[in-house]
Design a binder for these strands. Sequence first.
RNA 1: GGAGAGGUGGCCGAGUGGCUUAAGGUGCACGCCUGGAACGCGUGUGUACGCAAGUACCGUGAGUUCGAAUCUCACCCUCUCCGCCA
Length: 423
Amino acid sequence: MLELRFIRENLDLVKEKCGRRGMAADRLDEFSRLDHKRLALLTEVEALKNIRNTASKDIAMLKSGPEKAKADALILEMRETSRKIKDLDTELADIQIGLQEIVMTIPNLCDDSVPVGRNDSDNIEVKQWGEKPVFSFPPKPHWELGEDLRIIDFERAAKLSGARFSLLTGFASRLDRALTNFMLDLHTQRNGYTEVLPPFLVNSASMTATGQLPKFEADLFKIKDWDLYLIPTAEVPVTNIFRDETLDEKDLPIKFASFTPCFRSEAGSYGKDTRGLIRQHQFTKVELVKFTTPETSTRELELLLADAESVLQLLGLHYRVVTLCSGDLGFSATKTYDIEVWLPGQQAYREISSCSNFLDFQARRGSIRYRPEGQKKSRLVHTLNGSGLAVGRTLLAVMENYQQEDGSIAVPKVLEPYFETRF
RNA sequence: GGAGAGGUGGCCGAGUGGCUUAAGGUGCACGCCUGGAACGCGUGUGUACGCAAGUACCGUGAGUUCGAAUCUCACCCUCUCCGCCA
C-alpha cells in the first residue's frame, strides 16, 4: 500500500504509474473526494472530542466541589456533544472503509528502470548464462520422459485430485528431494540465509499484508468456515513473521530461505500449460525473503537474483534473465526479474524464478518497521523475495536437459552427494 | 469438544468509573560522579494521523456513560486440567 499522504500529494504521478501497468485510474478521483471529506470530518470530530475531554475533567472537579448544579448543566450539554461525536465517527468510519478499499487495491509504483509494456512479450532480456545443450536425438518433453520412465503419473493424480496435480514416484521423487536439499543447503551454507519452516495455512491479515488480499482472493484456496488460506508461496508466511513488529537496524538485512508447498487455484489460466508439471495447483518451492533498509533494497535485489541464479549455474542449466515490463509486473512489486530456464523438450524458455523488490509497500500494509541506529523514530523496512527455486520446474528442467539417448536421465554432478545415502 | 485462569509500555507489574498526564520496578539512552568501572544521583525513554494545537491507542470489536484500562456482551489468543488425536 502507498502512503496516504503520498497519493494525496502526487495524484497525477500515481495515476500515470497505474496507467503504465494498464490499470484504470478513475478510482483515484474517488480517492481524492473521500480523502478531502475525511480530513474535514476528522478536524471537526477531533475538535468536539477536545471539548468533551476538557469538560469531563471539569465535571469531575465540579462534582467534588460546591457547584454541583454546574456539573449537571455541563453533563446535559455534553450529552448532545457526545451524540454529535457518535454520528460523525460513524460517518468517518464509512469513509475510512471506502478509502481503505481504494488504497488497498492500488498497485505499487513501478520503478523507473522498469520498461513500459503491456504483457510478457514486452519483457526485456538482460542477460543469458550458459548455452543450449546439443542433442544427437530429438529431446522429449518431460511429461513424455516421466511417463516412459513411469516416474510421473498424471492420470492417477487426476483420479486422486483432478487436473493440475501430479504423482511422482521413485527416481522423480528422489530427484525432487535431492533438489530441495541442494537448494536449502546452498542458500543456508553458502548464501547466508536462515532456514525457516512456516505454517502452510495463514489468516487473512497475513494475506492482506503481502498483497494477495483483498484483490486476488480468486487465486487462493480458502479453508471452509475458517479464516485460513493455503499459502500460494512461502513469501506470505515468511514476510509476515515480523508483521506489527519493529526490528533493530543492526539485525538487517534479515535473510530467510523457506521450503514449503504452494497452492494456487490458477483461476483464469484455463487451457494454459495443461501438460506436464509447469502449472500445478500444488507445487513445492524454496523461497528467499529479505528484510532490508530502504537504502539497500535496490542492491539487495541484484544480490537476491544472483543467489537464485547460483542454483541454476551449479546445476549447469542454461537460462536467461528478463526484467518484467510494467504490464507484467505483480501487484505489490516495484521491479521484478524473472529467471527463465531453457527447456529443450519444448524448445522454450520458462520462468523458474521471480525476484522482486517491494520497497515499503508490503511493510506498510503489515506494519513492519525498524529503528535506525541511534534514532528515535522508526521507519518501514523494505521487503524482497524470490524463488530459489521452484522445485517442480527445476525437476522438469533437469529431466529435459539431462535426458540421455536411451531415455534415461543423468544426475547432475552437484546432486550426486544427495543420491549417495544407502542403507 | 468440556472446565478453569489470564491478556496493561522493550520486559515485570499496580490499577474495579473522573488529579491516570497508566503508579512502581527493570531494561535501554544520555549526563553527573570515577584514574577507569561498579554503585549512587539526575534526565529522557511507545505508535499512528496532523504544520501545529490536538485526537486515537491498556488482546479485538460492539455497547452503557457527560466520562471506560476499569462496567456489559461477543470474539480472538495464551496457559492449566479433562476428553479425543498423529
